[in-house]
Design a protein around this nucleic acid. Structure first.
Length: 471
RNA sequence: GGCGACAUAGCCAAGUGGUAAGGCAGAGGACUGCAAAUCCUCCACUCCCCGGUUCAAAUCCGGGUGUCGCCUCCA
């Protein structure tokens, strides 16, 4: 498949370095709060990429996503909550898994934590020091940016340009303003670990370099994250990793666009900040996932109530189709009747075409918007065919529903199952209504339907009998 | 100041040289006891503007306008 590589600014054919095995590293959350929809986008997106690589090529994907469990934000939040940093981390790692599971994000192969890899981090910093790429000052250790000639190759910046625009305060202890911390000396009251430079804690960027190397080796296939991580985070990761190993750190760099709110960047200071946990009070997790995948991942998307409504309604259309299939299956003949064979055969052909369209879209830099369009076309054709046939065969129903779920599954969508059967009370009411309809007692029939509606049961009368939908 | 992205219908969104996908919303119709679901029809003579290249441009080139992002913790 083709993937847009930030490094080369081009779509390139992706083939893993090691045959049949893909090594992916995706930057995970800092666990100081519930994650927000901005975080959710890369999680959902790169989970989808992983699913697709597994589905289409049968690759074994080793997927690493870290938890940043020590940094300024962690320390400040823990202080505010009156708990330790590790308690804070534990709490929000748990919450991460709750939301992630809801969003259909598969667990990574490994979810390493920075604080559990201090040894590896120190070893990496030492290696950089030995090679003359790092220097210690008063217990801090900095990366010597000027020592890495390729600095800026990912973000396509020149070091000089960055410096001229630098808004950071000049730290006179640093050799160059662009030098960044690999290790930070302990400040009073902060968690700290022993190191050759005294007590302290790792800088932010170094953890990813160290953990990626530990679990995936010196060169990985795909490294991904949000667009804002291109600089400085990923640029710095490259500098650290490649200065240490002399090998390319990642072959493909993938970055997703941002989520805006009213066309403005979502940020805490602007107060337009939405956690996934908040949104699920109003919309299913799946609506969020569907919403994220309905645009191309590199484009910015807006978030609003209206757009979530649109996403929900679109998602409903697919589920309605699946419901219909399920309902028809209940009394379906094994094979199509005479005169219906042709229609079903034609549908089979169309299904095949839509699957090809789906794959084609995904092959082109993970164009999930186009892939979803193919699924909608499929839904329409299924609806048309099933309405044209008096009694669709179990065979075609199985096929159509199965494919919709199969391809939906690649996107992590459409897997919700309606539990079958209703309790006796409901069944009795449905039967009463059926009798009332037979008696042409519409008033009673409608009354019962309304009563069931209040209980969260929707009835639809179809040519194949009454359809019971639980909300 | 430097670097970059984007601009397609009421809304969302694909398409990147061959004559505008798909979804949501809306209108009309079919079906139905009524609904719901579903289907059919309609809904961008045109893709921010102006030039240029070409037989042919939403798509390529130049210029302009607008919006946003990065250069500082940030997905």
């Amino acid at each position: 498949m083709k993937l847009f590589n930030t490094l080369t600014k081009q779509k390139e054919e992706f083939v893993p370095l090691e045959e049949g095995h893909v090594k992916m590293y995706s930057c995970g959350p800092t666990v100081y709060n519930y994650f927000h929809i901005g975080n959710a986008r890369p999680f959902i997106l790169f989970d989808t990429l992983r699913r697709y690589l597994e589905y289409r090529y049968g690759y074994e994907v080793t997927f690493v996503q870290n938890f940043t469990d020590i940094d300024d934000k962690m320390i400040n939040r823990a202080k505010k909550d009156g708990i330790t940093v590790s308690e804070l981390a534990e709490q929000y790692i748990r919450e991460y898994f709750t939301d992630a599971a809801g969003l259909g994000i598969k667990e990574a192969t490994v979810h390493p934590k920075a604080t559990e890899h201090i040894d590896g981090i120190i070893a990496l910093i030492r290696r950089l020091e030995e090679k003359g790429h790092a220097y210690a000052v008063d217990g801090d250790v900095y990366f010597d940016t000027r020592s890495f000639s390729q600095y800026g190759k990912l973000s396509h910046h020149k070091l000089e340009d960055l410096e001229s625009g630098a808004r950071i305060e000049i730290d006179t202890r640093k050799k160059d303003p662009m030098d960044f911390a690999l290790w930070k000396a302990q400040k009073p009251g902060e968690p700290a670990w022993d190191s050759p430079w005294g007590k302290g804690r790792p800088g932010w960027h170094i953890e990813c370099s160290a953990m990626a190397q530990k679990y995936l080796g010196e060169t990985i296939d795909i490294h991904s994250g949000g667009q804002d991580l291109v600089f400085p985070h990923h640029e710095n990761e490259i500098a650290q990793s490649e200065a240490a190993t002399g090998k390319p750190f990642a072959r493909f760099w993938l970055h997703n666009g941002f989520i805006n709110v009213n066309d403005e960047k979502m940020s805490k200071s602007a107060g337009n900040f939405f956690t996934v946990r908040d949104i699920v009070k109003q919309y299913d997790y799946e609506v969020i996932r569907f919403f994220m995948l309905s645009a191309h991942y590199r484009n910015p998307i807006n978030f609003s109530h209206e757009l979530m409504d649109q996403a929900r309604n679109g998602l409903d259309r697919v589920y309605k189709c699946l419901e219909n299939i399920q309902h028809l299956k209940e009394n379906a003949p094994d094979v199509a009747g005479p005169g219906e064979v042709q229609t079903e055969k034609a549908l089979e052909e169309k299904l095949k075409k839509f699957k090809e369209k789906f794959i084609e879209a995904m092959e082109d830099d993970l164009n999930t918007a186009d892939a979803i369009a193919a699924l909608f076309s499929m839904v329409r054709e299924i609806n048309i065919s099933l309405a044209a046939v008096a009694h669709p065969s179990a065979n075609i129903l199985e096929h159509a529903g199965g494919l919709l779920k199969e391809l939906g599954g690649v996107l992590g969508l459409f897997q919700k199952e309606q539990e079958a059967g209703v309790d006796n009370e409901i069944e009795e009411l449905v039967n009463q209504r059926q009798q009332a309809r037979k008696d042409r007692n519409w008033k009673l029939a409608d009354e019962i339907r309304d009563r069931l509606k209040e209980k969260g049961i929707t009835l639809e009368d179809t040519p194949q009998g009454v359809k019971i939908i639980k909300n």
